[in-house]
């Protein structure tokens, strides 16, 4: 169903070369805006980013009442930091991996490879897009939690560092999956790992709830991110050990990705 261009060819000189790259910052922002828009437009991604964490939050608070689970703090104060950690994980790991997997499949990365946007510009753009989506998530989840009676500690620095380190670690791991598997396999693996870490990775439930297994899960990126968020929002502390664990994961993931990632 292609209609013919109705206009005659444009005036002579229309295509006279005038090449040049836009300033780097403008390119990176354009890329970030584009990626964030595509992420938020996609229904499944939005479900993963906001709806699932909210269901987990409400379910966990109600469930702990019914089951008579008791913590040192009110349930909403314990679970909200974990759900925020879950949201960070869903965006920086699962969404990023799936999106990047399909970008490889559809030749988007190859196409952008001939544009003035450099590889590092593309990566920075992705990171800013992640941050934008995470901001939306944090605002929505926090508002809901506040209406449920959440009273966070003033641990803004701790939260900021936890989100940064957590994003770095999970993004590196997400790119590792996306860069080495086919798009469909990435889709399956990223969702499966997300589900496993959500249910058994000490993201939402504190490691104290895992008994002896807690000493294992706190070395997972999920456990470290969850603990760092809880430390910041329950006690207002900066959890150096957990941040260190996240940075080590970021390093491992980054090096492995740099070695294995193929753009096509």
């Amino acid at each position: 169903m292609s209609t013919l261009p109705t206009r005659p060819a444009s005036a002579v000189g229309t295509f006279t070369p005038r090449p040049g790259a836009a300033p780097m910052a403008r390119q990176v922002l354009a890329q970030a805006r584009m990626e964030a828009r595509l992420m938020l437009r996609n229904g499944e991604q939005l479900l993963l980013a906001v709806v699932v964490p909210l269901i987990v939050l409400v379910g966990a608070v109600q469930g702990s009442d019914r089951l008579g689970l008791s913590f040192d703090h009110p349930a909403i104060d314990v679970f909200t930091p974990g759900v925020l950690a879950l949201a960070v994980m869903s965006t920086s790991f699962t969404s990023l991996a799936i999106a990047t997997g399909f970008e490889r499949r559809y030749g988007v990365i190859k196409r952008l490879g001939t544009s003035p946007l450099s590889r590092s510009g593309l990566l920075v753009g992705k990171v800013i897009a992640l941050a934008l989506v995470e901001l939306v998530q944090v605002v929505v989840i926090s508002l809901v939690a506040l209406t449920m009676g959440w009273q966070p500690a003033a641990g803004l620095l701790g939260v900021l560092l936890a989100v940064l380190a957590g994003t770095a670690a999970f993004a590196a791991l997400g790119l590792l999956v996306a860069g080495s598997l086919r798009a469909e396999a990435t889709l399956a693996a990223a969702n499966l790992i997300y589900l496993l870490l959500m249910s058994a990775g000490a993201v939402v439930l504190p490691i104290s709830a895992y008994g002896g297994f807690g000493d294992v899960v706190r070395w997972l990126p999920s456990g470290a991110l969850g603990e760092a968020m809880r430390g910041a929002l329950l006690d207002g502390t900066v959890q150096l050990r957990d941040l260190g664990v996240l940075l080590v994961w970021a390093l491992i993931g980054g090096v492995a990705t740099a070695r294995t990632f193929s753009w096509e």
């Binding site: 595509l38 437009r41 559809y106 988007v108 190859k110 196409r111 001939t114």
Partner: peptide, 12 residues
């Protein structure tokens, strides 16, 4: 560069 196929996000 015009590639032989693909080169755009599926939802864009």
């Amino acid at each position: 560069v015009m590639l032989q196929g693909g080169g755009a996000w599926s939802g864009v």
